[in-house]
Nucleic acid binder design. Structure first.
Lengths: 191, 191
DNA sequence: GTCTATATCTTGATAGAC
DNA sequence: GTCTATCAAGATATAGAC
């Protein structure tokens, strides 16, 4: 196995290059030529590793879906509401902060959305996470708070205004803020 | 002026068709052929009304930017903090609810983002809105709450889970929830 | 595993008839 | 103001040499 490349095998470098370009230009705005150029190979080399562009999309998205699924399952495994929330928020925020500007782009990209919707194993992940956040409440108000926190965390974590915060600080700020916002609907459980 | 079309002149129908398709497939995922087909004309007819695809993007985006600018300016014209917040939130939520599923897609689309960033008159709209939300606070915590509310409102207003709420109800729910979340940082002003 | 070369299709855009 | 016909460029994808 030829390992004369700067960092790791070509397949993984292709996935990383694609990830960055997808986030910046969208999937439709990123040609295989751009991806190949990014790591210094030709289009044909890309096609050796991935039979089609869709396969590349799948390779880019899958690790994130797996990580998210693991977080949701871990949270569902907890029993007390506070623990479920902490596990879910902590896990999601870790994912967001570790990737920063990528999540919004990936989540909003029409091609990726369609790809994810086409995978039955992953389709209800968003709803399961939402149910965990809502807890026992099922009214409209709780739903709206849940939606605002979900979308708001993803949006905030990608903001250029927070770019100079280090990961640890950003994680802590997002977690406490999300906790406090979600606490609005259940003020009694807060100390 | 030939007015033998189902609804209004062709130019406006093209803009509306483009808006819907952009939101669904993204700008790069929407060909001029698709837009032409949508209203039953040919590509060449599109090019009569818009010299280039970018001009169509501009025609789609401009009304929203103008509306947003009007809201921000109206809010900046108020003097008391509570009035500024109410004007801003009310205006933005009206825009979101009136268009629902469009805003997230438009805001996240790389082509549209680039187009907006290239218009100096509109570039600082987001920051001005953010400053209005933050009020006198300038710390990280206030910034994060502002970001979460901004992104969260846009995200929530597009959620399928809220699709069956009528506009009036959705508006009211979003407004009171946003108000309460922003109230976290200034609990003294809330009775 | 990576290359050159090419096939095929779709795109944004133009020319000119009506 | 809309059409048919066409162009040049760029896209995904394939074939076959090394």
């Amino acid at each position: 196995m030829a390992r004369n490349n700067p960092a790791g095998d070509v397949r993984e470098r292709l996935v990383q290059a694609a990830l960055g370009l997808f986030a910046q230009h969208g999937v439709n705005g990123t040609s295989l030529q751009m991806i190949a150029d990014e790591i210094g190979v030709t289009k044909a080399a890309v096609y050796y590793h991935f039979p089609s562009k869709e396969d590349l999309v799948e390779a880019v998205v899958t690790p994130y879906l797996r990580d998210l699924a693991a977080v949701v399952e871990a949270a569902e495994g907890r029993h007390r509401r506070a623990d479920r929330l902490d596990t879910l928020l902590g896990g999601i925020i870790d994912l967001l902060v570790d990737n920063r500007e990528l999540h919004i782009a990936l989540q909003a990209d029409p091609v990726i959305r369609r790809h994810v919707d086409g995978r039955p194993d992953m389709r209800d992940l968003g709803m399961r996470a939402g149910l965990l956040m809502m807890g026992t409440r099922t009214d409209t108000h709780a739903l709206i708070i849940t939606l605002i926190v979900s979308g708001g965390l993803a949006y905030a974590s990608t903001s250029p205004y927070l770019a100079d915060l280090d990961d640890t600080e950003l994680r802590r700020e997002l977690h406490t803020t999300a906790r406090r916002i979600l606490g609005i609907k259940t003020p009694i459980t807060q100390h």
